[in-house]
């Protein structure tokens, strides 16, 4: 294993460690929010917003929906990187 590969591996492990720490902090914060939600009344702009843990459920679902739709959208509107380039280069030469 050369120096570069070694560095790469160490970096990868560090990133994984930070990722785990981030997830841990996130879970703790969510648990705290859940506890607050149980013990306090949260006022919402719409009646539906006052449902138990509504913003949380809505945020999670919205995020997953956006990403999944994005994946679907890729099938329709994703093109190779040089999609516009070829024709425009021709035009430029002309």
């Amino acid at each position: 294993m050369n120096d570069n590969e070694m560095k790469h591996k160490v970096e990868k492990m560090a990133l994984e460690r930070y990722g785990k720490a981030f997830t841990f902090v996130l879970v703790i914060a969510i648990v705290v929010l859940l506890v607050i939600e149980i013990f306090t009344h949260r006022h919402g702009e719409l009646p539906i917003e006052e449902m138990f843990f509504f913003p949380a459920i809505y945020g999670f679902s919205a995020f997953v929906f956006i990403v999944m739709m994005g994946k679907l959208l890729r099938q329709v509107i994703m093109r190779p990187e040089n999609y516009y380039q070829d024709e425009e280069d021709d035009r430029d030469d002309a």
């Binding site: 997830t23 996130l26 607050i36 939600e37 949260r42 917003e49 509504f54 913003p55 949380a56 995020f63």
Partner: peptide, 17 residues
Amino acid sequence: TGQLQLLLLAGMAFVVL
């Protein structure tokens, strides 16, 4: 709390995905 719920759970969705 409403805003934090929205953002943190959306962030959680990212971690899960």
